[in-house]
Design a protein around this nucleic acid. Sequence first.
DNA 1: AGAGGTTACGGGCAGCGTAAGGATC
DNA 2: GATCCTTACGCTGCCCGTAACCTCT
Lengths: 310, 310
Amino acid sequence: MPDLRSLEVFYWVARLKSFRRASEKLNTTQPAVSQRIAGLEQELGVRLFDRASRGVSLTGKGLELLSYAERMLLLRTEMMAALAEPAALSGVVRVGVAETIVHMWLSRFVERVHAVYPSVTLDIDVDISPNLRDALVAHEIDLAFLLGPVSDPRMANAELARYPLAFAARPDFPLPPDPVPVSALIATPIITYPRTTRPYLALKDLLTRADLPPPRLYPNASLSTIVRMTLDGIGVSVIPPVVIARELEEGLLRLVRSEVDLPDLVFTATYPVAPDNMLARALAEIARTIAAENHAETASVIRQSYRKGS
Amino acid sequence: MPDLRSLEVFYWVARLKSFRRASEKLNTTQPAVSQRIAGLEQELGVRLFDRASRGVSLTGKGLELLSYAERMLLLRTEMMAALAEPAALSGVVRVGVAETIVHMWLSRFVERVHAVYPSVTLDIDVDISPNLRDALVAHEIDLAFLLGPVSDPRMANAELARYPLAFAARPDFPLPPDPVPVSALIATPIITYPRTTRPYLALKDLLTRADLPPPRLYPNASLSTIVRMTLDGIGVSVIPPVVIARELEEGLLRLVRSEVDLPDLVFTATYPVAPDNMLARALAEIARTIAAENHAETASVIRQSYRKGS
DNA sequence: AGAGGTTACGGGCAGCGTAAGGATC
DNA sequence: GATCCTTACGCTGCCCGTAACCTCT
């Protein structure tokens, strides 16, 4: 009788339409997948895949089996979530994280996860949101904390928090008095998120006027470098104030009011909808809690900084 | 992650409330069961059974798991039934058979099963119906063809056929002309089914009258011996005419009409309702077909015999 | 003492990974 | 020749069975 492992392998081959990709997803080798599928086909006496030169596709029987496999894997996942002791859950979860999150609460998240699921290992991958999104759809990571919901139907999004964006500068950085007009901002180097990200695109849109020269945007893939450059007086930065709470507190940076209405940064926990990603869902829930806690803690600091700046 | 084998072992321990009995049901050893349950408890980090000196009982978590285990095993069974090639199904099915069935169509049943499910092995156990019923509830057999439905809620019954009972005797056996009165029957040795069976009890009931001496019933556990004894003129037998179709055909025996209204023998295919007995259900269905074919073939012979006898 | 479950230990086999093979573009 | 799946083969580790042990009645 087929066991769940075989059905799991089958499920991923069916979904990824490739033995090789399934083997990668399952952290095993391609021949191992081949064997499992061959075994399954023999046990059932049925051909499950049509092997074409380019990729494989399900046969009719295979399609039927897929529905059973999905239901059984889902049932097992539910079962584990319902009655396994959290401490007994183990495994590796590959998490992709936008750098902003690292600066805000990632370490607390890791601690909390370790406390609740001591046998779970986190593989953490810090990258910009567009890359994380690609990694998600390619099943290279199991969970991501990134900018904005991913609008793929196979992805589940849970909003973590909205962080306002703001202009920040050294207190002695030469600027007209608040609120700073767009014309002045365009003349000033603005350091911010990398070229392919949402905030960069939004900013470029807001500051591009047909009648004025293009803005001087300095995209930067490293948030701490953005902060460093701002501290060094190279320009004004556009970042969420929560990231520079300490610098604001100590008066090393100030928030700058302007005529421009910057959009909020919306971070979501995003993970693929699959019958075996219970841990991803559970970790997303933990992230939501941590993000909420963090938000409550930092809110007052930010309000205070705006008062100082004006 | 727990596999289906562990859940299957768990299911049977839970149902039979004993490690040892589960090991017997699963054709394995008791320590193997112990280990599997221990492994399952460790994987989930949860105690599943309370081990008392006399038997084991489910804990709360165990009860929860049982529901999942049942659903998953049922799903697997459905899956196999839905899309496995019959030739790929293999296993041993222990079948208990009432002797009457052996004389009627058992060999054809075995052939048919072998043709449809070449990899299935049948373990055939011939015994009287009350013993078969006990074996069923004790899970010593997976399927039985026996007399009358078994009214246990955990058993599924499928009616195979109704065979009329009749009195049969040697043509030269001294009897009053048909219809033979009860008084004559009581004075005659009557050879029939064993003491604990339905037909014996029914017959005893019908022939016991307060005003007459008790009937002379010769119970016999072997149907062929009953026939032999009847052929030898030891007495009148009460058996289904279909069993002696050949003897009737050849004029070695005749059917005797009487004032007594003998009940029909109702044979059913009976099997325990369990999430893993798909084969039992499939074989019961085959049996139903075979019984119907047999009924059609023999009906005319029987009608003819009554005409000869009268 | 006997029934029932656990622990200890040795052997067999399933399933994995490495490596070579074959088909199709 | 590149890509992708299959076949061959040796090895590891799991799981089973035997046997000894523990506990409760």
